[in-house]
């Protein structure tokens, strides 16, 4: 069953250099209970997409100017709808837990606040519920740490607190925006482990936004890969990773150095990440692409099924055959 459905989403931002289209016609679905990775590098529009779903696109610079987002049959772009669902149905975890927590309130009170505001719980009930949550997200000596302030927690522990707050009202959709990017590798492993465990326990949908192909590999069912505001490839994770149909995807895979196996020279993608202020005509990836021809300059490719691949695996490329044969 589809829980979240994004269609032709367009988000614009006014910058000092002009108006940029941060998300340009992105469409995707997230099924209930599913873990989806939203992958992309800087400027891909992955975080802005999440902001649009949460209804927190920074105003007045940013503006959702087209498309639709529906959550469980409700129109999230209609006034007030996203606000009503935020926290209860859809929750979000951010990259930087320190700036997302209020530094002047005790952690226990901040978690408990969720119950007090949305459930009308008493102070005592809220405290007990906060303690429960802190234990669930694996904060050691939780009863002692209830009355600590955010700055007394380490980065990993703060992220656990954020996750606890996001889970407080048992949301059906959790969006995690680069939840481990600011953390050390060993702590990253802990947090990813926690997120997968909680996702399984709660049966919620999880959208993992990241730039790191590896982090989501053992975790996500499906991936949605974005480049310059557009979805360029989507499909089951293993399918996309092993049979990349878009030159950007295969380029990313070749760019990551491995921790084992032979130490070959990396094959990087040429050129620089896209400048949203001056995107090329047609396919945005064209200037960095070895398969690019006139068609790519004239016609913007749309997502379509790849030859001889499952129907769920789609890429927005005019020449997927070349990519598929060259890589495999």
């Amino acid at each position: 069953m589809v829980l979240l459905s994004v269609r032709d989403l367009r988000v614009e931002f006014a910058t000092s250099g002009g108006v940029v289209t941060a998300v340009d016609g992105a469409s995707f679905d997230v099924g209930s209970g599913e873990t989806v990775a939203l992958l992309g590098e800087s400027g891909s529009g992955k975080s802005v997409t999440a902001q649009a779903v949460m209804g927190i696109v920074p105003k007045p610079a940013g503006r959702v100017c087209g498309g639709s987002i529906s959550y469980d049959g409700r129109d999230l772009l209609a006034p007030g709808v996203a606000k009503g669902l935020r926290g209860r149905e859809i929750a979000m975890v951010f990259q930087d837990p320190l700036s997302s927590l209020n530094p002047v309130f005790r952690v226990g009170a901040q978690i408990g606040e969720m119950f007090r505001r949305h459930r009308g719980a008493s102070r005592r009930e809220a405290r007990a519920a906060a303690l429960d949550l802190m234990k669930r997200v694996g904060i050691p000596a939780a009863s002692k740490r209830l009355d600590d302030y955010p700055h007394q927690f380490s980065g990993g522990m703060r992220q656990r607190v954020m996750i606890a707050m996001a889970l407080a009202l048992s949301p059906r959709l959790l969006i995690a925006d680069e939840p481990t990017t600011a953390l050390d590798v060993t702590v990253q492993a802990q947090i990813m482990d926690l997120l997968t465990r909680l996702q399984a326990e709660e049966g919620m949908s999880l959208v993992l936004i990241t730039h790191d192909l590896g982090v989501v590999a053992g975790v996500a069912d499906r991936v949605i890969l974005m480049y310059a505001g557009r979805v360029v490839e989507t499909g089951s994770l293993r399918e996309v990773y092993e049979h990349s149909g878009h030159p950007y995807t295969s380029g990313l895979m070749a760019s990551v150095p491995a921790v084992d196996g032979p130490r070959d020279r990396l094959v990087p993608i040429q050129g620089s990440p896209p400048d949203l202020l001056s995107l090329p005509s047609g396919c945005s990836f064209r200037p960095r692409c070895q398969y690019a021809d006139e068609q790519c300059a004239e016609v913007e490719p749309v997502l379509r099924q790849l030859p001889d691949r499952p129907s769920t695996h789609q890429a927005a490329c005019h020449h997927p055959e070349g990519v598929l044969t060259d890589v495999h």
Binding site: S16, G17, G18, G271, S272, D275, L277, S278
Partner: peptide, 11 residues
């Protein structure tokens, strides 16, 4: 290769 600097012409 350099990202072109767009004319910054906003008041």
């Amino acid at each position: 290769m350099v990202a072109p600097v767009a004319a910054r012409r906003r008041t």
